[in-house]
Design a protein around this nucleic acid. Sequence first.
DNA 1: ATGATATTGCAAGTCTATTGCAATTAACAT
DNA 2: ATGTTAATTGCAATAGACTTGCAATATCAT
Lengths: 153, 153
Amino acid sequence: MVVSSIFESRRIAVSGLGFKKSLKAAGRRVTRTRQAVLSLLERTAQPLSATEIFDQLQQEKVSIDLVTVYRTVHVLKELGLVAQIELHQEGQARFELKEGREHHHHIRCQMCGAIVDLLLCPLKKLTKLIESQTQYIVDDHTLEFTGLCPKCQ
Amino acid sequence: MVVSSIFESRRIAVSGLGFKKSLKAAGRRVTRTRQAVLSLLERTAQPLSATEIFDQLQQEKVSIDLVTVYRTVHVLKELGLVAQIELHQEGQARFELKEGREHHHHIRCQMCGAIVDLLLCPLKKLTKLIESQTQYIVDDHTLEFTGLCPKCQ
DNA sequence: ATGATATTGCAAGTCTATTGCAATTAACAT
DNA sequence: ATGTTAATTGCAATAGACTTGCAATATCAT
């Protein structure tokens, strides 16, 4: 991995292998819709909202209900295959594959919506500081940026 | 200000002075409901959601509609008197007074909901790094933590 | 006090997300 | 292969956050 750069475009699809085991291990079934959602997330260079997953699968002539999309990402999240994120004040959840990816954050263009991954997290030390000062146990965090992408400036 | 501590409970109410000028300067009126919302935010030790503002004012026998709460915080935000924030994956906006407060972040207990302010922001250097590497211009960010407060551990 | 207009309350609507339930389908046993 | 069982899906309905239209009301400059 290139450390000198803090951002990356998405890596090439990997999975199709481990997720069946994960599902079965949890007593869940390998269904057409779950495979379709996972496959889409693998092929897509951005974290997707439920609606975006639904729309894209519709376009690909995959028959799926929006409710099923919500239920599917929920299951995939429970299994740890997918991460649920919230960009800066967007008012909706987005989902991205976890498999093979490091912890990272995002910046989103407030004009055109372009999302870039930020392959860094400056919060390990900060987390310890917060824990010692507040006596909270830190479990998770959100760190998301907005701004203008090169094209929209 | 005490620098050795990164968190604080809310400071004592200050305002009631400047906000009338701000409103008038923007051609807006000083109304009963705007004063009630501002007063509540001054008295409250946590960023509040629209519903919480509504409920609390109801309890205080202040007659106000939920729609008016939304419109009020929107105006106060436009005037720069109030900040709109989003805690970690909460799915709703919260509002807090900006006046006299420094830029800060929050940690919220995922059990009981207790919110503590974190009087620090480690993101100035990071912002520059992001800007140089992505060519985005960073405009704003969200940095919010969840975890367990001392009581809930 | 009065008139102009900003603001409010109510009703209705939008958008994201969840839940109940009957019909369908995956997966295991035979 | 076929049947059985339970997980899963689709559809309809519902919940929650937030917005919009419009008539009634309140603010405030005169």
